[in-house]
């Protein structure tokens, strides 16, 4: 069996205590919530924290509050969100994204915070230590070369979160807590430029809350491309949010994911769409524009060329659904 390395295990009672432990332990400590991302990585010896700081007893980070805005505790399980009927009605795109993650069993364990902080993925990286030895390791872990782009100076591991593109499109904010205090950032600000430094969250910070502002009249959609109906991470994902003024686009957010190390906000496409009617021609043009921002490489399932092609199809379908 694949076995975990050893570690010290701590289970604080609240966010403040968690932050305190993280400060005390330094960079050798890691937070674990559902464990569905971290434990496989530890078994494959990607990460071997000396101390695991578990959120299992941290109840102040659970729950969903719905006023105008929706506030979700980072430690809320994916299954909890999936079973939240009001969330399904109010934020169907987010619900769709949550419901599409891996499998029902895994969603019983995984948390929204874990999905937001999901380690970037690459099939040169998500392999056992022995396998990685065969390629002399890679830039992201224990090695120097990014094998999917050997001349690259940065890591191309893929942000494969389902909820992140939707949260960005919806203008969500993340609250991070450390012993240095609390800060709230725009969702997109959470994500770094490459597959190694993929989070701007500091090692001593705990993601505590996700706040999604009142969506008003805007409607959103999430579309995910993958091989199978369960288990699989996205190989291309599109989140779109549109606010219409009559039959014209008043505001639009279009975010791609799983096509590079960082979620892609399609700014020029958004500009292009503003004030336009979503005719089939406009949607087609927008889809082409948006696909330019996608830079899939050969490090996930499916061929990268095909993924690039379906990005535009999926953008078209996403906007079509919001028409």
């Amino acid at each position: 069996m694949m076995r975990l390395p050893s570690f010290r295990y701590l289970a604080p009672k609240d966010a403040a205590e968690t932050a305190k432990i993280l400060t005390g332990e330094g960079p050798d400590a890691m937070i674990v919530a559902g464990g569905t991302d971290l434990y496989p990585n530890m078994k494959r010896r990607h990460q071997m924290p000396k101390t695991l700081v578990s959120l299992r007893n941290v109840n102040d980070l659970r729950g969903v509050e719905m006023n105008g805005a929706v506030t979700i505790g980072s430690n809320e399980t994916l299954r909890g969100l999936e079973r939240n009927a009001e969330l399904k009605t109010r934020l169907p795109a987010l619900w769709t994204a949550v419901q599409s993650i891996s499998t029902p069993i895994l969603r019983n364990m995984g948390t929204i915070g874990g999905n937001v902080c999901l380690d970037t993925r690459c099939n040169y990286y998500n392999q056992n230590w022995e396998w990685r030895r065969g390629i002399d390791f890679c830039m992201k872990c224990d090695g120097t070369v990014c094998w999917v782009a050997p001349s690259s100076s940065v890591c191309w591991a893929v942000n494969s979160s389902d909820t992140v593109p939707v949260l960005i499109a919806m203008g969500a904010k993340f609250t991070l807590v450390s012993t240095r205090g609390e800060r709230t950032i725009e969702a997109i600000e959470m994500f770094g430029e490459d597959g190694i430094d993929y989070l701007t969250k500091q090692k001593d910070e705990v993601l505590t809350r996700i706040e999604i502002p009142d969506q008003g009249n805007a409607t959103s959609v999430y579309r995910k491309v993958r091989r199978r109906g369960a288990f699989d991470f996205p190989v291309a994902a599109v989140a779109a949010r549109v606010e219409m003024d009559g039959d014209e686009v008043k505001d639009v957010n279009l975010v791609l994911n799983a096509v590079g190390p960082k979620p892609v906000v399609c700014e020029s496409t958004q500009e292009f769409l503003k004030g336009k009617k979503l005719t089939p021609e406009v949607v087609e043009e927008a889809a082409k524009l948006a696909a330019r921002g996608a830079k899939p490489l050969d490090n996930t399932d499916h061929l990268s060329m095909w993924r690039k092609k379906v990005v535009s199809v999926e953008v078209k379908r996403a906007l079509g659904a919001l028409r």
Binding site: M2, Y9, G34, T36, Y39, R79, I105, N108, M109
Partner: peptide
């Protein structure tokens, strides 16, 4: 697989199916 990729090790914890390969004994 011991990596959460097959569901074979599923047990119930407080009635909910969970992957026993990705839960610590300690938890």
């Amino acid at each position: 697989c011991e990596l959460g990729e097959c569901g074979t090790c599923t047990v119930l914890m407080d009635g909910e199916p969970k992957l026993s390969c990705l839960v610590l004994g300690l938890e």
